[in-house]
C-alpha cells in the first residue's frame, strides 16, 4: 500500500506538470480577476479619458475570454 502511494507521488512529481485543462482554468480565473480589478479601477477613476481607455481594455479582455470559453 505504502509503495503504491509512494509510486503515485513519484509519478506526480515526474509528470509533466499541470494538464492543459487545468492550465486553461487557471488562465481563465486569472483573466476574470484582472477584469474585475480593472472594472473597480474604472469605477474609482475620475478622469473621463482614463475611464474610456479602461473600458476599451476591459472589452478587449472580455472578448479574449469569450473566445477561450467557446474553443
Amino acid at each position: 500500500m505504502k509503495i503504491g502511494r509512494l509510486y503515485k507521488k513519484l509519478e506526480k512529481f515526474f509528470s509533466k506538470g499541470k494538464k492543459d485543462e487545468e492550465k486553461r482554468e487557471d488562465l481563465l480565473n486569472a483573466l476574470d480577476e484582472k477584469i474585475a480589478s480593472m472594472k473597480e479601477k474604472m469605477k474609482k477613476s475620475e478622469d473621463s479619458n482614463k475611464k474610456e481607455e479602461l473600458k476599451k481594455e476591459i472589452e478587449a479582455l472580455i472578448e479574449i475570454k469569450d473566445k477561450i470559453v467557446k474553443e
Binding site: A30, L31, K34, M38, E53, K56, E57, I58, A60, L61, E63, I64
Partner: peptide, 15 residues
C-alpha cells in the same frame, strides 16, 4: 509590469 494589462492595451492598439 502586468501581462494582462499589456495584453489589453495591445488588443486596443490592434483595433
Amino acid at each position: 509590469g502586468d501581462d494582462f494589462e499589456v495584453l489589453a492595451k495591445i488588443k486596443v492598439l490592434e483595433s
